[in-house]
Design a protein around this nucleic acid. Structure first.
Length: 650
RNA sequence: GCCGUUGUGGCUCAAUAGGUAGAGCUGCUGUUUUGUAAACAGCGGGUUGCAGGUUCGAUUCCUGUCAACGGCUCCA
């Protein structure tokens, strides 16, 4: 480090260099470029990291000033708004102790411990009001290096800010900083232990909304203090805020539980038990169609279908290790003839039993078993959620047994299967490779073989992926695929794991070319995940408007009056014979009423039959989204819809 | 499981400062025979999640419980 430099040089995003006085901050840089830029700047990206606007720069730094036009600046705004919220909460509830308040996707939260009060929705309004006042005061947010950590810890202790004291103790060697909120006279009115970064002041904080209150734990640890968390969102402009709230509304409209009531899709019954799904005919049709497609795709790719029992002697799960590692999620044993049996929580042991039912040669491999296997898992009552989180569900499960040499090729095939299924449903996706975690079974060589198998297959396909270092499960590296739905929301999608545990526990082997026994490589994979979650997600993805090939009802035939019934009936039967799901609405209702009903049920096509159609021997085709399509020969319509279904058009 | 909120006919929602609930849609019946998102009329339908308690009286207040919802946590 040079000691007597009087000038520094920084690099700007456009590649130009700028010379500044030593000790200059990002703010100085902004000023030196343009006064307007300075006024707009709220922070800076220094060597790729978000920093305060008043961060001193060093020689050689690459600096990009952040204004509200940069998406990164939202993080600054949200984190700063979180501080304002905490300040407001403490001013309204003096007994509140602050924990942490990070920015998260689309917003932020802050955790509090308030011993004598539970925050209500009405409180949120009051807090918002106080926040607006603080923002209006344009308090300055000033970074302050803690000179004497012990003294500051004492200070926090005295104030009862035990969480801050605990954090500071932990970060004492990381140059801890406070952020001070100062009024216009420079008096500090509030402070928070925080590494930042923050906006220079609160004046730009104006478009925010507190969304909900929930419970949480200090450090996400159930054995520690219970906290109250306020979730909120913040944006640079009122318009952005409104757009975001609209998006939330849109998501709410797509809620599969809500759509289920409108479209008669599924139900859950208190008398039966939470988390247990009843599939009504409409959704059962969708599922059945998906399953047919699923079977076809698997058959074509050399999978064999198997069925395994729903209960098993718990010995099986002792061998598999599920009882030991997964026991909390399994249902209590039932006594059958003095033996303890369990509901199956996973399909793998069953598939292994089939594999092991005879001696396998390397010539038999790979063996690919697939099952739409229904499993039951205990989920804590608070986590159940519609069809997305349930206690009984059917996995589209498969286990591939192969040799180490075959692994990469098998993974490649699975990735190909995933691609065709996800593309058909219109999901975009992204792959993540999770590697060996700290606590894990198996040898380095095994992990390397398995991880390479996964990674090489992705590389071979040119599939983009991110690596989640150490994110694997204790017995397997895995590929997780995240799906992005029609409105850009993320869903957990397909998963592939190379199991390094079960083949050993069950002694899963094959006879190699050399005549010796070798341990088989075992791959678990699910593409849809579970039928429950997948279909629940699909409802939201399509907003209840299933594409024609999946739609519970594909065509509504609507005669205008009684004299058109006969022809309508004839057409419905012709459609039914072609395996098209058709509903003849022969009620004595007006055509408007029948159309409205079919629209509400999201029937893709409506065929209106009246005098004109009889006379010209045509059908009047209406589509649920485009309205009137036009009149055409029935055969023409039939061909059109058959093609659409066959191609599984979106 | 924990924190918070909620729980009224099939659905959406109203009402009661404690005096045993009301509307629209749905359903059924009748009339209407209809031209691209709701014809008209009539009739049904709820011991206000469940169990206790307070009270002359509870759906309304209290306690417990179950479930749902929003999170925590976890995950297919």
């Amino acid at each position: 480090m040079s000691t007597v430099e009087t000038q520094i040089q920084v690099q700007l995003p456009d590649g130009n260099k700028k010379t500044l006085d030593a000790g200059a901050t990002a703010a100085d840089l902004a000023k030196s470029i343009a006064e307007g830029l300075f006024r707009k700047s709220v922070g800076a990206l220094v060597n790729g990291e978000i920093k305060d606007l008043y961060t001193p720069l060093n020689d050689g730094d690459t600096v990009q000033l952040l204004t509200p036009d940069n998406p990164e600046s939202l993080e600054l705004l949200r984190h700063s708004t979180a501080h304002v919220m905490a300040e407001a909460v403490q001013s309204l509830f003096p007994s509140a102790k602050i924990a942490i308040g990070p920015s998260i996707q689309d917003g932020f939260y802050y955790d509090f411990e308030i011993p004598d009060h539970s925050i209500t929705p009405q409180d949120l309004e009051a807090i918002e009001k106080r926040m607006l006042e603080i923002a209006k005061e344009n308090q300055r947010i000033v970074r302050y290096n803690i000179p004497d950590v012990d003294k500051q810890i004492d200070e926090f202790q005295k104030q009862g800010e035990k969480f801050k004291a605990e954090l500071l103790l932990e970060h004492r060697d990381h140059d801890p900083t406070l952020y001070l909120m100062q009024d216009k006279d420079g008096n500090t009115v509030w402070n928070d232990l925080c590494r930042g970064p923050h906006l220079p002041g609160t004046k730009d904080i104006k478009a925010f909304k507190l969304l909900k209150v929930s419970g949480s734990y200090w450090r996400a640890d159930e054995s520690r203090e219970r906290l109250q968390r306020i979730y909120a969102t913040a944006w640079w402009s009122k318009k952005d805020l409104e757009d975001y709230l609209k998006r939330l509304e849109e998501a709410e409209k797509r809620d599969h539980r809500k759509l289920s009531k409108q479209l008669d899709l599924f139900s859950v019954h208190e008398e039966v038990g939470p988390g247990l799904i009843f599939w009504h005919p409409n959704l059962a049709t969708v599922r059945d169609t998906i399953e047919d497609y699923w079977r076809q795709e698997h058959r074509r790719r050399g999978y064999s279908f198997v069925y395994t029992p729903h209960i098993a002697n718990e010995q099986l799960y002792k061998i598999s290790g599920h009882l030991e590692n997964y026991g909390e999620n399994m249902y209590s044993p039932m006594d059958i003839d003095g033996e303890d049996y369990r509901c199956k929580p996973m399909n793998c042991p069953g598939h292994i039993m089939i594999y092991k039912s005879k001696l396998r040669s390397y010539r038999d491999l790979p063996v690919r078993y697939a099952e739409l296997g229904t499993v039951y898992r205990y989920e804590r009552s608070g986590v159940l959620h519609g069809m997305l989180r349930v206690r009984g569900f059917t996995q589209d499960d498969s286990h591939i047994f192969c040799t180490p040499e075959q692994l990469e090729g098998e993974i490649n095939d699975v990735l190909d299967l995933i691609d065709s299924l996800m593309t058909t449903f219109g999901y975009k996706y992204k792959a993540y490779l999770s590697t060996r975690p700290e606590k894990s079974l198996g040898t380095d060589e095994e992990w390397e073989m398995a991880t390479n198998g996964l990674e090489n297959a992705m590389k071979a396909r040119g599939l983009d992926y991110e690596v989640d270092e150490g994110g694997g499960v204790f017995y397997a590296p895995k590929i997780d695929i995240k799906l992005f739905d029609a409105i850009g929301r993320e869903w957990q999608g397909p998963t592939i794991q190379v199991d390094l545990n079960l083949p050993k526990r069950f002694d899963v082997t094959y006879i190699g070319e050399d005549g010796n026994r070798h341990q088989a490589v075992m791959v678990h994979r699910a593409v849809l995940g579970s039928m429950e979650r997948f279909c629940g997600g699909l409802i939201e993805h399509y907003a209840g408007r299933f594409p024609t090939w999946l739609a519970p009802m594909q065509v509504a035939v609507l005669p205008i009056s009684d004299r058109h019934q006969e022809r309508a009936k004839e057409l419905s039967e012709a459609l039914r014979k072609q395996d098209i799901r058709v509903h003849l609405d022969d009620r004595p209702e007006t055509i408007q009423y029948k159309i409205r009903d079919a629209q509400m049920e999201q029937t893709p096509y409506m065929l209106v039959i009246g005098d004109k159609e009889l006379e010209d021997n045509v059908v009047a085709v209406r589509h649920r989204q485009g309205g009137m399509v036009g009149t055409m020969k029935f055969e023409e319509f039939l061909e059109k819809i058959k093609t659409e279904i066959q191609n599984r058009e979106a």
